[in-house]
Design a protein around this nucleic acid. Structure first.
Length: 507
RNA sequence: GGCGAGAUAGCUCAGCUGGCUAGAGCAAUCGGUUCAUACCCGAUCGGUCGAGGGUUCGAAUCCCCCUCUCGCUACCA
């Protein structure tokens, strides 16, 4: 049996249409999933939507539709978006799925029977007109941050999860698994702000809204987001039934999440799993955000477009490449249309597209498209060949460290080197003298090999473009098993393939 | 307030277990080349490495202090 790799995105909240931030997380997850598949892993890549809660209930009411109708439309749209972005998810979970709901109910009951969920009273500061609870720190001048009116201290009956019970275990777990949270700064935040000061029990049911999964043994309660949403990572595998899928894929290898929900995934989720006696995920990566004009992406600011506009204008791989290349590990990165254009022109058009184009055209022009194995070595070849031969290991390492942007840098360093190699070897000069014909063939062969290796790796990041390159080289795409097995003979045909990318003129 | 991260070329960042003249990409200027998508290659321009103090033969890199920016500070997915 192959090694397995279970990777997840968060399940997104479909209270509004998805934006480039959702795409960002999902594209990263997709690239990692594709990379692991190429490396021979049996990958399970899951994404989905978290569809319950007050906010959606309210939005649906405003629109005059049922909550289910409201989310159905957004989910259909999201699935279309993922398709356009070539997101290769294996499973799309919705918390409104029947099987998810019954499994959540079973989990809730299980924890209740065990004594880790108990009935208590939730005391909070409540704004009656807004029907919302607030914490001390959320208040603005002691008033409701939404409407500015007074809040009252109210109590409602609720079920609680004994989070406090797992404080010590969590601390120990962090100690023993220093790489559990990436980047490290996120771990410090969790330890210093929550775990060390002491964890409070967590309110896991609500009576203030109806749009959720009912508690089976107490129907006026609805199971709140923590247990409803976080458990998606195991209900999709059949849990609480111990299915073959569950045994195979759990624990997850990587939960990819935005920095705003690191807490839920590194405190609440592990504690729930401890309570269920299940192994914990191996890693949670809290990535940064795409920032627009220095601020976060926000519907109310109206500072973003439907991501499909970018895909339609510049191509899916321009968008994917930007998301994967522009933002450093764990930090925020700026997104703007002009930086997207610059990236696309500089890297995809000039370095990659032009290299493939000039190489193939020389193969056609000088050898009628038939470029066979190398015959005349020269010292100058060594540097390029070394870079190509070590590339796969370097990229492996970067992916392991989740430094996706640096992985792409490594690949493009090699592509740059190819362009330089052409200038250094001057094939157009070699072509003038019949005596240099075999040397010229070697030069082109080395270039074709370099391009093939890069394209093989690029399949994980910009799959559509990689496919185009394989078609241009007239070879089958392949995985990492035979990446360094030479093809020995390229039959490029006689027709120049279409450009991979057209330069974008900035308005 | 507490905890944490950061402040390095016009822009985005790397370097920071202290050590040759501080690096990359983009942008700008100049030159080369023509196989190629006005592309590619090379060179140049450009930084008192946030301020001040200290340790050291030597600090962007360690210590102290200050200024500024950002993140987190639990029931908002």
């Amino acid at each position: 049996m192959n090694k397995k790799y279970y990777i997840t995105t968060p399940i997104y909240y479909p209270s509004a249409e998805f934006h480039i931030g959702h795409c960002y997380t999902t594209i990263i997850a997709d690239a990692i999933a594709r990379y692991k598949r190429l490396a021979g892993y049996d990958v399970f890549f899951q994404t989905g939507t978290d569809e319950h809660g007050l906010k959606i209930e309210t939005k649906a009411k405003e629109k005059g539709v049922t909550p289910k109708e409201y989310v159905d439309e957004i989910i259909a749209n999201a699935k279309d978006l993922w398709q356009q972005l070539n997101i290769s998810y294996d499973y799309f979970i919705r918390t409104t799925d029947e099987h998810h709901m019954t499994r959540v109910q079973e989990i809730f009951k299980k924890l209740y029977d065990k004594g880790d969920i108990y009935k208590g009273e939730y005391k909070g500061l409540y704004c009656v007109p807004c029907e919302s609870f607030w914490t001390e720190s959320q208040l603005v001048d002691g008033k409701c941050p939404d409407c500015g009116r007074d809040v009252n201290l109210v109590a409602e009956e609720a079920y609680f999860f004994r989070l406090s019970k797992y404080q010590k275990q969590l601390e120990d777990f962090y100690e023993q698994n220093p790489d559990f949270i990436a980047p490290v700064s996120r771990k410090n935040e969790m330890l210093n702000n929550f775990i060390r000061p002491g964890l409070e029990d967590l309110c896991v049911s609500r009576t203030s809204f109806k749009w959720g999964i009912p508690v089976t043994f107490d129907e006026k309660h609805v199971i709140y987001v923590w247990i409803d949403a976080l458990t998606n990572y195991i209900t999709s595998l059949g849990y609480p039934d111990i299915t073959p899928e569950f045994e195979k894929y759990w624990p997850a290898d990587l939960h990819l999440v935005g920095k705003e929900i690191v807490r839920f995934h590194t405190i609440i989720w592990p504690a729930l799993l401890m309570a269920l006696d299940l192994p914990l995920p191996k890693k949670v990566f809290g990535h940064g955000w795409l920032i627009i004009d220095g601020g976060k992406i926000s519907k109310s600011l109206g500072n973003y477009k439907d991501p499909r506009e970018y895909i339609n204008a510049y191509g899916v791989d321009a968008v994917r490449y930007f998301a994967l290349r522009e933002v450093p590990f764990g930090s925020d990165g700026n997104f703007s249309e002009s930086s997207l254009i610059t990236r696309t022109n500089a890297d995809l058009c000039n370095i990659l597209g032009n290299l493939v184009s000039r190489t193939i055209q020389m193969g056609i022009k000088y050898f009628d498209g038939n470029v066979k194995n190398p015959k005349v070595y020269a010292d100058i070849d060594e540097d390029l060949k070394n870079s190509v031969n070590t590339l796969k290991d370097k990229v492996d390492q970067k992916i392991e460290e989740l430094k996706i942007n640096e992985a792409l840098e490594e690949i493009f360093d090699v592509l740059r080197k190819c362009n330089k190699y052409i200038d250094d070897t001057t094939p157009w000069v070699l072509a003038k003298d019949e005596e240099n014909k075999t040397r010229l063939e070697t030069v082109l062969y080395n270039l074709l090999e370099a391009i093939r290796v890069c394209a093989t790796i690029l399949q994980a990041f910009i799959p559509e473009t990689a496919d185009k390159i394989f078609k241009g080289l007239k070879i089958d795409n392949n995985n990492f098993d035979n990446i360094y097995e030479s093809v020995f003979e390229y039959q490029l045909g006689s027709e120049k393939p279409a450009n991979l990318f057209e330069r974008i003129k900035e308005e």
